[in-house]
Design a protein around this nucleic acid. Structure first.
Length: 431
RNA sequence: GGAGAGGUGGCGGAGUGGUCGAUCGCGCCGGUCUCGAAAACCGGAGUGGGUGCAAGCCCACCGUGGGUUCGAAUCCCACCCUCUCCGCCA
């Protein structure tokens, strides 16, 4: 959410920065018009309230002095003011709600350094790591690998749940689990993140805090009693500090969690329907940092490195790109995407997204810290990043390790979580 | 799900109709004392909003939302949350 004072101070600058996102019209004039109405109503309501309070104080005094006529006069005055206050505060609340709704629906401002662009095609590659392997055969997609087929069962999942679900079994299920454990252990032991286990059902306000609501309700699932299934543990991890005033010494807070994630994939009909690239339910190891404003950009670089480290340990070729203004998510100031090489598709595909949100989410969830020595609390900065999407990582491991005969050589780094085993045979055995 | 207890400022904990934004203790900040520190003593400090060049002034906030009353932290209603016990249960 945006700072209304900042918009008031320099509406043109706000519009200009916002305009760097495509298809966003100038909106400061509308905001300021509502804000002016709002402030006028507040002023009127508070003036009336002050008058009521003053009269109300005199009422008691008049009665104590036994001035019956004065008592009755003041009583009537209070009653009159009271009605006025009720009407004016209602009006003020309407305008206040209108302003808040509008502010909640406006995306974050891209940092100046973010490249301008309309969409995916304008993203800028920052670096590449690893060489796509030269196979002596035509590599296939993960679900086409003979050794994978027995362990990746879309038909049974469809029987249970429908399209965009998968059931993993045997060796493939174990590799999937190993990947998640490997990621968590790496982040905890070597990157210093705090392992966290969170609910996956949350209240509205948590979803508002991390900007899934109010605008993107159709992308998530809701239970009959109103809970939302988290689309990412960014929601729970980031909202751990909602409403808090933290000591500066407590920052940065670095968390990681491995959770189920649920997405309706509304609007993605026909896209990535084969295999387990895009599912309604998937696992992700997420990273979230809470920092001071001064350190959030450094933290963004650090978090990106944490995600990259996962792919490097697994020996998976990837590239790191910075998203252009047209491809960036709603809450981000700047986003790095990691794209892993998928030989079956002969292209790089997104496997991680690392974003710095500045104080955008902190304002929504009222998360602050008290700078050392200073008097007033300030909003924290929040960051989130996948480290990594487990299902997609499984795909990458399987496709990059395929040997052409239906088998797969697995990354050495996973060995401790695979009981020392390192290969998937063409008939689906882990050996 | 049932019964009971409770939700007050960074923490603990008073306060059951007005003068309470709220006693007090701890912690925090500044000062006196000290070579320095501790102790002691003195002083300061909540959050948000409105208004003003500013000093300041005004409004709101005692879990949340309603209500009663001239007036609510205090009374009433609903809801949420926490704790204890019971039930059920991975």
């Amino acid at each position: 959410m945006h700072d209304i004072r900042a918009i008031r101070d320099n509406p043109a600058a706000f519009d200009a920065r916002l305009a760097r996102r495509p298809a966003v019209a100038p909106i400061s004039a509308e905001i300021l018009a509502i804000d002016e109405r709002r402030r006028a109503r507040i002023l009127a309501a508070e003036t009336a309230q002050a008058a009521q309070n003053a009269a109300s104080k005199e009422v008691g005094a008049a009665r104590a002095r036994g001035e019956e006529a004065e008592f009755e006069r003041l009583r009537a005055l209070v009653a009159e003011k009271k009605a006025e206050v009720a009407r004016l505060t209602d009006e003020a609340a309407v305008e206040d709600g209108r302003l808040r709704d509008l502010l909640l629906s406006i995306p974050n401002l891209p940092l100046d350094e973010v490249p301008e662009g309309a969409g995916e095609e304008d993203n800028v590659e920052l670096r590449r790591w690893g060489e796509p392997k030269a196979f002596g055969f035509r590599p296939v997609e993960h679900y086409e690998i003979a050794g994978v087929k027995p362990g990746m069962d879309f038909a049974t999942a469809a029987k249970l749940s429908g399209a965009r679900f998968v059931l993993l079994r045997g060796a493939v299920a174990r590799i999937h689990r190993a990947l998640a454990q490997f990621m968590l252990d790496l982040h905890v032991a070597e990157h210093g993140l705090t392992e966290t286990w969170t609910p996956v059902l949350v209240k509205d306000e948590a979803m508002v805090g991390t900007n899934q609501l109010p605008k993107f309700a159709e992308d998530s699932y809701q239970t009959t009693n109103g809970w939302w299934l988290i689309p990412t543990s960014e929601v729970t991890l980031t909202n751990t500090v909602a409403g808090d005033i933290l000591d500066e010494a407590a920052l940065p807070i670095r968390m990681t969690a491995h959770t189920q994630c649920f997405r309706s994939e509304a609007g993605s009909a026909g896209k990535d329907t084969a295999g387990m690239l895009r599912q309604h339910q998937f696992e992700k190891v997420e990273m979230v940092s809470i920092t001071t404003p001064e350190t959030s950009l450094d933290e963004h670089a650090r978090m990106t490195r944490c995600a990259e480290a996962v792919l490097e340990r697994l020996g998976l070729p990837y590239r790191t790109i910075v998203l252009c203004t047209g491809d960036m998510g709603f809450g981000a100031q700047k986003t790095h995407d990691l794209e892993v090489w998928l030989p079956g598709q002969n292209r790089y595909r997104e496997i991680s997204s690392v974003s710095v949100c500045g104080d955008f989410q902190a304002r929504r969830m009222n998360a602050r810290y008290r700078p050392a020595g200073a008097a007033r609390p300030e909003f924290v900065h929040t960051l989130n990043g996948s480290g990594l999407a487990v299902g997609r990582c499984l795909i990458a491991v399987l496709e990059n390790g395929q040997t052409g005969d239906g088998g797969v050589v697995l990354p050495q780094a996973l060995s401790p979580w695979l009981g020392g085993k390192g290969r998937l045979t063409p008939d689906g055995q882990l050996v």
